[in-house]
Design a protein around this nucleic acid. Structure first.
Lengths: 333, 333
DNA sequence: CTGGGTCATGTAATCGATTCCAGTGCACGA
DNA sequence: TCGTGCACTGGAATCGATTACATGACCCAG
């Protein structure tokens, strides 16, 4: 590879001058500037980002740690983060934790070692030992989607309380007596919050969720399927299922179909998270839609602000209910 | 941040020794090794990957350039690449080209500057100016999913000829007289090949595709929707639509539904690419399934082999037809 | 004509690691 | 006892950039 030294000698100047030209300093003459640029062009020189970063202690890179890339919810976020980062001249190193806390810790360490300029993390669980290490280095950090107890950094999250209340009302209005909930892991903030908010909304309407009608999954397809199997196998089975994540929802739908039940005829289904193709499902799913693109964007902007030594506030977006009839709400309510 | 020098003085040794301990060299005594490790532990030292990479000219990083992260097909590939890379101690820098050739070139340059150890690219188009730059640096390169003319590097691709022939036979068997094709861009290898292979398979069966019944999209939802609108608006409209990519297929399905047509009653639909939730669509889609995970894995392994100075062969996987009835094949054929 | 200031440029230190080469200490064989 | 070899360790160069400081040319005012 050609280095700055090559360019310098080729242009008959010192490396300092080449560097100044490269970084747009005022100093160099139009004439030397031209000579240097010509040399760069001629040699096909490209600066070594590693060397530059080592010297400047800036990598123009974000680390993005997400818990599951095949979950379209996270894929959309990742895409949005990447777009916003790119617009500001940053690259994104992607780390897929596969919903594992250890994997996540390992990755955070790797990203620290690589001296990323900032870290965006969707925490896999509440266990935030990794956070201490990050805080110790003073690296800008933003939490995304899920928060963790005692976190001392900006958090970008989505408030689903209202949407869940709307959903509860819709379900009750559609005549559902017993609502089964396929909740997320109770060691994630979203797992806990969604369940709590939805539960209290239903309780307020006089239809509290029966403890047996709550099953915890792990935000993945298979767990949703199993949860649905369990719930629908109960003697007093639910008349509607609410899955607190899109993959679990799809798993539940698959299970219900395999049981030969019709939706919403035999059982209603609603799902947290929306996808462009949800209207094409059989039946089109009633969902709680989160502004994923806005989440990713906001998180990236937040991180950029942190890097600029500003003190960005938390970002709270809101989810909203989208009715498509899979709870029988058009037919009945 | 604590550096190696800190560790060295804290342990009363030189940086050379610390480095040797860190890299598992044979030299240091058990005793000094212990002292160094203790110092590392005590100071919470973590090596600076930038400095190391600068010296060793290895970053343990792959660059992965894909054309669209929200396309679940690519998301799956990205995930598989990431897993395989991680298993071999590599990180993945993700670059999303958004199906734009320029964007792709920009990203390739950035990745070169960052001295990634290897590059995995799903080329956005046949225009491979960027490839010359990569070849010039001698950086290991593997093409994924799509190839480009005159590419002198390993390619991991999927052969869909047989599956497309099966699909053609299935359509003809189901009584479809006129098949509309929503093809990919003709400046991508997959766009061209799939169309050609499918076209000749139908021709061999005595049902050549009418030129008016071929519309090119850009592998995205909206283009599939528009293509379907165009095709279904023809006086002699197709009795079946085949979309050569999952997003275009979903767009087509959406359009057909908006037109109030039933599938497969009024028009059959088949799609290239499968997804876990395709069986849950209305109707479940007949597809040509590609082994995405295997693609990603194979590509990563291929790259690792290249880095190890081996000469891995091209990888050719095969797609297969999965019938789910959306072409009327259960009812009619 | 000269001293001080401005401006472009070069010299060299530096970032934090790795690694070649040389030096030290010790054991062992003659 | 002394030379030889081996094992361990340290000094210092190096990777490729950035940047503080020094230098020299040049200009202008006094």
């Amino acid at each position: 590879m050609t280095t700055m030294k090559d360019v310098a000698s080729h242009a008959g100047v010192s490396t300092a001058t080449v560097s100044r030209v490269l970084n747009g300093h005022a100093a160099p003459t139009q004439e030397t500037r031209a000579r240097v640029l010509a040399a760069i062009e001629e040699l096909g020189y490209r600066p070594n980002a590693l060397a530059r970063s080592l010297r400047t202690t800036a990598t123009k890179t974000f680390g993005l740690v997400i818990s599951d890339l095949v979950n379209p919810f996270f894929a959309e976020i990742a895409r949005a983060v990447e777009q916003e980062a790119r617009a500001h001249g940053y690259c994104v190193v992607l780390a897929n934790a596969d919903e594992s806390a250890e994997q996540q810790t390992t990755y955070v360490r790797t990203l620290l070692d690589r001296r990323v300029d900032g870290l965006l993390v969707c925490p896999a669980t509440d266990d935030a030992a990794w956070m201490d290490e990050v805080v110790a280095t003073g690296l800008p950090l933003v939490l995304l989607d899920r928060s963790v107890p005692g976190a001392d950094c900006p958090v970008v999250r989505v408030d689903g309380a209202e949407a869940l209340a709307d959903l509860a009302a819709t379900l009750v209005g559609a005549g559902h007596e017993r609502v089964g909930v396929i909740a997320g892991p109770s060691d994630t903030s979203t797992g806990r919050e969604r369940l709590a908010q939805f539960g209290s909304a239903l309780a307020e309407l006089g239809h509290p969720v029966h403890p047996d009608h709550v099953v915890h999954g792990d935000f993945r397809w298979e767990s949703g399927k199993q949860a649905a199997a369990k719930l629908m196998g109960l003697p007093d089975r639910p008349t509607a299922l609410v899955a607190m994540d899109n993959l679990m929802g799809l798993g539940a739908l698959e299970q219900v179909r395999e049981l030969g039940l019709s939706v919403p005829g035999d059982v209603g289904i609603a799902v947290y998270d929306d996808q462009p193709w949800f209207p094409l499902l059989d039946p089109p799913l009633t969902v709680i839609a989160q502004p994923t693109v806005e989440m990713g964007r906001a998180a990236a902007r937040c991180l950029i602000a942190l890097i600029a030594d500003e003190q960005p506030p938390d970002v709270d977006l809101t989810a909203r209910l989208v009715k498509r009839g899979s709870c029988g709400e058009t037919g009945r309510g």
